[in-house]
Design a protein around this nucleic acid. Structure first.
Lengths: 352, 352
DNA sequence: ATGAAAGCGCTAACAC
DNA sequence: GTGTTAGCGCTTTCAT
């Protein structure tokens, strides 16, 4: 039923026969090559249209050696982070009429190796490797096609990895907290084993130090990537005597930040009036539902995907692919969780 | 640098030369076809290994007429719902060594048509069409390959669409609310224009009627798919005089349900002791962060994807593809937002 | 048990 | 201008 006309799909020869020309002429006519009489060209086009002719891309690829396909290998299940990334990747590739073959390695290296073989057999023009954790992952090794690692970094320095700049993102957050007048900053991270937790803690420390402040160890809370942990952390912070309480909190994820905001409110601490909170990820589900909406660091994943894919395309075109790790900047998105009313009034006044 | 040995990739001929046999023999040896002397076979395998030979899938496909590739066309940006769906699709396809070519139509029909052409030119074996809204979408029309619509339904009755059973899912939720002793049920939906909002309201109505109860129009709140709306709805419900308050709420999404739970708590109504709340989607981000965790209807999207892909594979193998809309059942996941302590104690007692 | 040859659908180079 | 030919890499008869 759904499988329609079982008539064999037409080839250049069928078109040639109908148009009364040779297969070579059909090819030229349809691809705008060579010198053809306009009348012939349109006759061929009409015949092709008529038969519903679709040039077999396989045959073209076999001949040209290019498939206009890249493989995207996600090492982790494709989660929340892969979505904007894929969007960016498709933006770049789609513009060049390159399709994406999607493979979900699910963190299993056997499965992954199987997919790589599959992709190479299919003669993809290049491969994008992605995955959630920002820690380095094993290199796929030297492959006959260019490979770009994005979001996740390759452990091999001769590979090109592209990710966002965790330190710079953290600096944005801390500068912002300082700019709105905060002087006693705390940090709430995810699990210690995650690189993101450690990098953002260190960068927080450095940024505060550079401003003549310090990140006290008692103001560093390491836990999980959950809202529940954020709430727990807020409760811990709220329990301190008034004089020892932080007035600004940088959270390593929006989920944590939302938990902190909820926890603060429930402990009777006003956000942002008494304490400013900044998150990381710019995940709409969290930033929008939070009360107040979250100020956060946007890792610009879509741009990241776009950039990585464009680098890969360059390499496919024959240009040299760099190596090492490229860091793209994050952006700060200011919402209500960080800017105390006083500061806002001051700004309004200064503008006026 | 990353583009390694520019030595041309080896072909069957290279392997044949090295093994001292003919190309035909190489093919037989590597594919386990025909009658070969074991010694020859292993010699060929060694030669292939040696050269790092990878059979060109393009050439095989050109010959066999099968690409072992299916196109996945998502009409909506691939969002939260597409992820588990894709996982299921890959499960089925991967088991049969079929790869997925991913296309994001972004709801733009021009773009979509472009992708369909692209997929057909690439000679995919079949196409899966998916998208977020459950309303019907225009059919792709009759294509030379089988097509399955999943999650989203095709407007053409001769197409096969597979989605989950909204009504049955709703019945699960309502039966559960009744089973835990609730008698005054309310419904909080998303926007009226969304089919899901309407279907779930109607099914709620029917299920209550069947139990000798009614869904009063004042207990139906239609709004948005957000937590904020859930909170607002809870506030409205909480404002009623005590005797007119619902004791059970079915929400058309987990986001709404979480908002309702938060709103109830903040209005001083205990969940689940005073009021039971049930959501829809089984979206971990919401169900887990909610206090208490949400009881919800799981549309089993992963299974749905698996099923749809397996139907497509059947059709590719030549079996008849059905038509019309196939509905897969939802499952109820019971957590703490719906079961009053009294009921739990009673259950424990009855087990003992 | 192995080799030779034809051909999948297309394009590019060379005839005419 | 258009037709003819060869060949991309592989598999599959059909000989031997």
């Amino acid at each position: 039923m759904a499988r329609s006309s079982s008539a064999a799909v037409p080839t250049v020869r069928d078109v040639a026969r109908l148009a009364g020309v040779s297969p070579g002429t059909v090819s030229k006519a349809l691809n705008g090559q060579g010198q053809l009489r306009p009348e012939t060209r349109s006759r061929v086009q009409a015949a092709a249209e008529n038969l519903g002719f679709r040039p077999n891309q396989l045959a073209r690829s076999l001949l040209s050696g290019r498939t206009y396909t890249v493989g995207v290998l996600t090492s982790d299940h494709f989660g929340r982070f892969s979505m904007p990334l894929m969007e960016g990747i498709e933006d770049s590739l789609g513009a060049c009429h390159v399709s994406t073959l999607l493979c979900d390695g699910r963190g299993d290296s056997i499965r992954e190796q199987h997919y790589v073989t599959e992709l190479l057999n299919r003669r993809v023009d290049g491969i994008v490797v992605t995955g959630r954790r920002t820690d380095a992952r094993p290199s796929l090794g030297r492959l006959p096609v260019p490979v770009v690692y994005v979001l996740i970094r390759s452990a091999a320095s001769h590979d090109l990895s592209v990710t966002y700049d965790d330190r710079q993102g953290t600096e944005l957050a801390i500068s912002h907290l300082l700019a709105v007048g905060r002087t006693h900053i705390g940090y709430v991270g995810g699990p210690e084993r995650h690189l993101a937790t450690r990098t953002r803690r260190e960068a927080t420390d450095d940024a505060l130090r550079a401003a003549g402040l310090t990140l006290r160890s008692t103001d560093v809370l390491i836990g999980e990537w959950s809202e529940a942990w954020g709430r727990a952390a807020a409760a811990l912070m709220a329990n301190r005597p008034r004089g020892q309480r932080v007035d600004g909190v940088f959270c390593a994820s929006d989920q944590i930040a939302r938990g902190v905001v909820d926890g603060m409110r429930e402990a009777g601490i006003a956000v942002p009036e008494e304490t400013s909170v900044v998150g990381f990820d710019n995940w709409d589900v969290m930033t929008e539902a939070s009360r107040p909406p979250l100020t956060t660091v946007d890792p610009c994943l879509s741009k990241l995907g776009q950039f990585a894919a464009s680098q890969l395309l360059n390499a496919i075109e024959g240009r040299e692919l760099g190596s090492g790790t490229l860091l793209l900047p994050c952006e700060l998105v200011v919402r209500d969780s960080s800017v105390p009313v006083l500061t806002r009034q001051a700004e309004a006044a200064s503008v006026a």
